[in-house]
Design a protein around this nucleic acid. Structure first.
Lengths: 345, 345
DNA sequence: CTGAAAGCGCTAACAC
DNA sequence: GTGTTAGCGCTTTCAG
């Protein structure tokens, strides 16, 4: 029923024109010097009948929607789910609605989604971009749409983004392992050509090079089926029983890694010290607790949304901003030197 | 640039009417007996210039959008995040896009979101309903919109839903604890008047009554700030050192519970046996592994989406369907009788 | 087979 | 101060 009431209906009911109603509803009554009394009558009727302007039509006309499109890699990944949630909250406070989608790191799907967002007249875009999406994003930006990226960025596209200092994070974590006396340190991560992964690999390698140690890098193809991650991981660890420490490149691979370690019956850190990127409950609750690189999720969300809101603001005369936040290495027993662990026991 | 091309442009370019173009684009060329040659020319041009029909305008006209609105309680909760992801996948295969939002169990926010979905001409709704939303959902259904609920349902609204057998699940889990020799069994969960929670409490109570044991129910108010869950939980456990087992009502409270248990230095299951609703990595990886009630996430997602697609289908002459799926109790060491644990060691 | 024209609900010049 | 009117881009009846 509500749905059928249009601005015309309420204009007719009051014997005025829909323009007047439109002005009043859009807060331009003053400006248009519409009598207060009329304004009241209109507002009253609107309340009474529960009239809601059809925002679809509005968007069609204005090109604005108060909706922000958020594209994460995979909403079932805790990192993205948490960020999404925080961004949604912040946006909601400011009167924006968020609609999100998972890109699955699939370029085609992302393009498709981008198109959908675009002709849904989304006002702004927050994207964790998959590969090969440069052109599409560049086109978006060129046509004046506000875009903010996070988690990773596109080196060849000049746009605002919020990322963490991936390179330093793994450098620092690796150094920590070295300082604790480990020397055969593997880095196991997902194969990816995206900035965040490349940087993490880089940081790991740098730390090892500095200490004149040999790197052992294993990149596993991502797969939604966990078995297909666990299997090569198991094989790799079995094939290299002499590793004394391992650094996992993401929370997901870290979790899989723990399963493998548990299954193989390895003692942490005696047989193998462990550090993982991202810090979640699994790591905190594991025995022993796992050292982890914590990303500042709240700060990421805050920065992303305020960057976007700034761009959404009428006077967007600013240049692009690239924000790099730092992570925290939460050291726990999984990576302490075996000596110290023995002592504290 | 793409954005500016409209159906008129392509009609003009070919010197035909936009009607013809529209027909061709909507696969009604045959029906309208448009020459194959023309069809080809149109399609070719469309490809060339990369014309995409503006779906906003299309929706305005047809009232259809091929978009499904999905409202979960909190997207950062793994249960909902996983379901959302699976539903998104299934829908995508069928040509539907999903837009999701978190209701936060906030009635007002949900109403607001519902309105947004509604005038975005969402084709169907998938909702994990918060309380006091009966009227709004009833109105939705009354106006002929397809609605499917999941995780919980509204007893007073006759609609399709997919839930799990909550009552039997906790009954079964509690019985398991009793069989393992535990007798002072607490049930700790979030305060809620929703069907899923009420059923879980009921199942727990029934099992205890059957065994003539006393129930110890503690309902904690939900809070986004984990501290405010951990604190009362800690207090409750400290106040009742004689509990020999505890059943947690959701994954979230289960995770918090583990933190508390770890912090208090309690041995599981010697000091306290543990079972939790929902089965996630944290429980599998904990030492000892935690017995958990696993919800059939894939089946829930499958059923939800196929129910909705069925309703979306033109001939929706069917009555409402209420689907209740069963859970699986994955028994692990956290709830084995202490005797057995000793033996297997 | 194809085209003219109405209209989805709203906004914003432009007139009165 | 208020009303008229022309679209936004598309679908669809109804005439040719």
């Amino acid at each position: 029923m509500n749905k059928k009431i249009s601005i015309v209906d309420i204009a007719n009911a009051l014997n005025i024109s829909k323009t007047t109603v439109s002005f009043i509803l859009n807060g331009r009554a003053q400006e248009k010097r519409i009598s207060e009394e009329l304004v009241k009558r209109v507002l009253k009727l609107v309340k009474e009948v529960g009239y809601k302007p059809n925002s679809l039509a509005k968007s069609l006309r204005t090109g604005k929607s108060n909706i922000i499109g958020l594209m994460v890699e995979d909403i079932s990944n805790p990192f993205f789910a948490n960020i999404a949630r925080l961004i949604e909250d912040r946006a909601y406070e400011k009167g924006y609605r968020i609609i999100y989608c998972s890109t699955d790191n699939d370029t085609e799907k992302t393009q498709d989604l981008l198109t959908m967002f675009q002709d849904r007249h989304v006002d702004g875009y927050i994207i964790a971009p998959p590969k090969n999406i440069e052109d599409d994003v560049a086109a978006l930006i060129k046509s004046g749409l506000p875009v903010v990226m996070f988690d990773r960025y596109l080196p060849n596209v000049d746009t605002d983004y919020v990322v963490v200092d991936n390179q330093f994070s793994t450098y620092n974590a690796t150094r920590h392992l070295i300082e604790q006396g480990y020397s055969k340190i593997a880095f196991i991560t997902f194969a990816s050509e995206q900035t965040q992964m490349l940087d993490r690999v880089e940081g790991y390698k740098n730390a090892l090079k500095e200490a004149r140690l040999k790197p052992y890098l294993r990149e596993i193809d991502f797969n939604r089926n966990e078995e297909l991650i666990i299997e090569p991981l198991t094989a790799y660890l079995k094939r290299n029983p002499d590793f004394d420490a391992v650094l996992f490149g993401t929370d997901h691979i870290g979790t899989c890694g723990l399963k493998v370690i548990k299954h193989l019956g390895l003692q942490v850190p005696a047989d193998l010290a462990v550090v993982s990127f991202d810090d979640y409950d699994v790591f905190k609750l594991y025995s022993p607790p796992v050292t982890a690189i914590a990303q500042p999720i709240e700060a990421i969300a805050d920065n992303v949304i305020s960057l976007l809101l700034k761009k959404l603001d009428a006077n967007h005369t600013q240049t692009t901003q690239k924000i790099t936040l730092s992570t925290t290495l939460n050291t726990r027993d999984s990576s302490r030197s075996m000596l110290k662990v023995a002592i504290t026991k």
